[in-house]
Design a protein around this nucleic acid. Structure first.
Lengths: 189, 189
DNA sequence: TGTTTTTCGATACCGCAGTAGCGAAAATAG
DNA sequence: CTATTTTCGCTACTGCGGTATCGAAAAACA
């Protein structure tokens, strides 16, 4: 058996929950480990025994947040891409822009945050890549660009508008993105 | 005339120079305002009177680094776009990724920083828009996407790779981006 | 029953970004 | 000259992330 005093099983949940609330309210930079510990009713040293840095704490938080996003391919690449990109855009727009930017900055600074953020999006990006590859195999994509570039040109503009230009991201814009990538819709107009 | 004691004209240059050196030696996180002030032979309060935060100090540093990038349109959209996007990619890659991400985060939070960052890129982005518009008017662009979307699909992927996926941005990638946007080069292969 | 091992909370500390307040210096205005 | 205004350097402070140290609590062993 394990020798010493057992870890308080409630600490993890209480700290993560407190971190969630603080993150929502103040963003990454505004999230204070002291306040999180205080809110969770836990000593700061206890917190640091489990998560050796604020970055790792946020990593754990984000990892716990990862919800499986249901996606059932319809077989129509245009429709599937629109759905997928719309889903990414919706998720990005659901949280304050400052939070996305803070996470990007933390990801650039902290390798572990970077990993978790990429894992957070990995599923959806893989789905986009799969649909793009299928569309290309079906001869629906004009040009000879690689799937990776096409995915970047579908998803990249979302981050670009959000973080750089600040221009709006609405459903019409997403449709334009897909339209521009797959070419004009043969069924319409 | 202005009433009070005049500002020491040498402070700006000495601080920026010290910040450069610290940035070079220790990176963004390792850059300490106290050390910069000390190295510049200036009180920290004097430094903060001019630049209200470490981020703004670094912004000023980068802005001072901005060299007017010469761009003479060759008339060939493919070549011009490649040059322009390569220039943007080169500039983005020349500074640490953390700095770009920090600037994006600061821009999301502070309107003034946002303005300065957008002004920093405005010139080049306008040039890209102009070339794309010209190419479209010349009938060189397949599809019916608006110029704004095409610009986003040319430049957005750079930020996306830099801030999110971390995949490399090299000259081959830029060529692929332009290739994907303008369609296959009729003069080659 | 101790003894050992581990976790817990608490306190104190470091370097950091950023601020407040002070007295002195350097300029203009009368 | 004196009065005013602004910048200067300096000290001290807050809150932050992160660490070191300590005594007490809670468990397993002998």
């Amino acid at each position: 058996m394990v020798r010493g005093r057992p870890r308080d099983a409630g600490v993890e949940a209480r700290v993560i929950e407190a971190a969630m609330a603080e993150m929502q309210a103040r963003g990454y930079d505004g999230l204070s480990v002291d306040r999180v510990a205080d809110r969770a009713g836990v000593a700061k040293t206890t917190l640091y025994r489990r998560w050796p840095s604020k970055a790792e704490l946020v990593v754990a938080m984000i990892t716990g947040l990862r919800a499986a996003v249901p996606f059932d391919p319809s077989g129509d690449p245009r429709r599937d891409l629109t759905d997928l990109v719309t889903g990414i855009a919706t998720t990005l727009s659901a949280v304050p822009t400052t939070l996305i930017a803070d996470l990007a900055a933390a990801a650039a600074r902290e390798p572990r945050v970077r990993e978790s953020v990429r894992a957070l999006w990995g599923e959806r990006h893989a789905a986009v890549t799969a649909v793009v590859g299928q569309a290309q195999a079906d001869g629906l994509v004009p040009g000879h660009a690689s799937p990776a570039v096409l995915v970047d040109q579908l998803v990249g503009p979302l981050y670009y508008r959000l973080l750089v230009t600040g221009e709006p991201i609405d459903s019409a814009y997403v449709r334009e993105l897909v339209h521009s990538t797959l070419g004009p819709d043969p069924e319409k107009s």
